[in-house]
Design a protein around this nucleic acid. Structure first.
Lengths: 210, 210, 210, 210
DNA sequence: CATGAATGAGTCTTCATTCAT
DNA sequence: AATGAATGAAGACTCATTCAT
């Protein structure tokens, strides 16, 4: 019946997942289509048959996750009532994505570092939607007298950049643990939500203070 | 004699500078030796003659640019007295460094994204020293009853990550300005100290609040 | 039963016809099995099931299209009486054949260009018979004092080559009509018999002149 | 000094010559860049270094010859005085090209057969220039009362098509010499100018007759 | 020191063909 | 008979690196 459909979905899933890992490890230019096919255990031509080409594969990897993130974030935020709850929902949504898709961070960092040279437009749209949402929360909170007037883009990029740098710096800190002392390995490195709690605290302090 | 040596130094300098720019733009894998030679205005074989190979060129670029960076940071921070002034000095020195070495950000971001595989140990030491200093500032402020108890590593990485993401996202935001709306191009993109002011405000609010 | 056989025949017919068109357009190497299947509206595997492989498909196309061609030519020519009438019949029958099998020209031209490597012997026999006939006409006309002594092979190949080049050059002339000026598109391109009239005039002038 | 230049010219010459032969044998699609490089005895990358890509190589092969032909034809024709002499110069120019570049014919035949799908515009310009020249001769001859009113395009294509088919059919006629009888192998097959003489005779008869 | 030609090992992509259902 | 997924062997093109002058 749909044994064929299942086989197809399974193949595509394996391709996308493997691609995410390899794009994260090596970047767009460094990733080899051959290697993705090998590690995914599929014939290289299948990537072209099912997805199209390397660029389309990259787009698919990013958009699958970021599109879903933007949508889920909208849901979470709409489910919350007060501005503070909405901020928590925003940070939670980011946390959920990072937990489920640990490779995304690396890919996005490289993407930013190269000036978005491989960033597909549809993914830029996903990012814009996320920025729009945090901006909406802050503006509303400000109108209601609960939040200070904080630049939403700076705040969002501090959240994303902070989390990214924290997670991504972990192997570096471990490698040089002699130099890093108490900062080499910590609870927040294992448990994302511990990290998110700290970020949330900083953010809310910055938004709410006198 | 000296003229010849000067010519050599000049050639090497042009190679390194151009390589820094191109590695920042395109990453290690994306950079083309041909392109570096062309833009540096030297024959490609000269790169191999003077430096060795692509990897050696990359190492050289990193080392040159990161070696000069760390020292300056400690100086500025130690010149301040109160905890709040020290926080300001800390943020200011980050800004100065980024102003002086605009390509550092991109290269460091990629390095982190790839797990710091190429990062020399000296530079790891510089990073540890910076973290130690911000940590000292916060702990002192906390003891003096001026600061809340905030995780210094998280805070530092939010500052670095936020600034990095902000600066580095600028071309992406510009490229997709239709999607980004009011966030495409802003005052803080031209003037680093405007950005630093916003970051400082967020950080101090988070540290000082009730 | 018969319905199933009909369906099969219909499928095979569609494959052959489409293949003829595409081989004519693109040549053997340029033709894509995928494209043939798509345009024929059949599944690609059906081509392999019914026919075998790409080479067998090509052979089948050639054989089908050339088998029917030769016979008709002899008939028409033998129905005429005087040498001049026979020349006219000869040229007319070439025209009729080209009208009926528009793809023949392209396939034959390529075959000739590649040294006739795929040309089946039967077809070579057909070609020889045609040359024999035009030769007979000219020799007879010469004996009767009506025609000059002209090399029949050269004349025949000028007729065939002229008509082929003319018809086949039409799309090229159209494509570059800016360069071709008045020669891009003309009456003889739409109406084969207009072209045949001009050829006939040239041929008869050459045969009859003083 | 210009040992390097010589080496370069020699390499390029070998590439172009080999490419001409292989494009003639196998057509544009059938030709393999690897094979061209191998048979030319150069590294494959040299083709891309010196010429650009497969298409540029094809263009170069055709335009080198046809551009020179159009130019030489103009010279030859200008050197002749009467219309009849100009026709002879036109046919002679074609003969010279075919003698010097025996592969051109096959390439052009395939090109026409595929509707000019790979024909570079600059080469179409060369062809247009040739047609313009024969057209000029006939029109002038007609004005001077020496020539009949013959369609120049038909005439030119009969000349080119006739010569092409004649030369190109030679291997086919040889292969089936049993069927072809006296037409299998003849003096005009060895000596182009014998063939040209016959063509010229037919053409002039057609132009001059009553 | 400097140059431009040369090299060989990839890299992405395509395509004829086969397999499982 | 029919379909869509799968395969492996090329094919065009690139790029870090080296050589000859």
């Amino acid at each position: 019946m749909n044994a064929r459909e299942n086989r197809k979905k399974e193949t595509v899933r394996r391709i996308i997942d493997t691609a995410a890992r390899i794009f994260a490890e090596s970047g767009y230019e460094g990733a080899r289509v051959d290697q993705i096919a090998d590690r995914a255990g599929v014939n290289k031509a299948m990537i072209y048959y099912h997805i199209g080409n390397k660029k389309a594969l990259y787009t698919r990897v990013l958009h699958d996750v970021l599109g879903a993130t933007a949508a889920r974030m909208a849901d979470n935020i709409n489910g919350a009532v007060t501005p503070v709850e909405k901020i928590r929902a925003y940070i939670l949504s980011i946390g959920q994505t990072l937990e489920a898709h640990p490779h995304l961070l690396h890919i996005m960092m490289r993407e930013l570092a190269s000036g978005g040279s491989h960033l597909p437009e549809i993914v830029a749209g996903d990012l814009a939607s996320i920025i729009g949402q945090i901006s909406g929360i802050i503006k509303q909170g400000h109108r209601q007298g609960e939040f200070k007037d904080v630049d939403p883009l700076v705040l969002h990029l501090m959240v994303m950049g902070g989390i990214s740098y924290y997670k991504v710096s972990h192997p570096v800190r471990l490698k040089y643990s002699a130099l890093m002392g108490e900062y080499a390995n910590r609870k927040s490195d294992e448990n994302v939500f511990d990290l998110l709690g700290k970020v949330e605290k900083i953010i809310l302090s910055a938004l709410i203070g006198p």
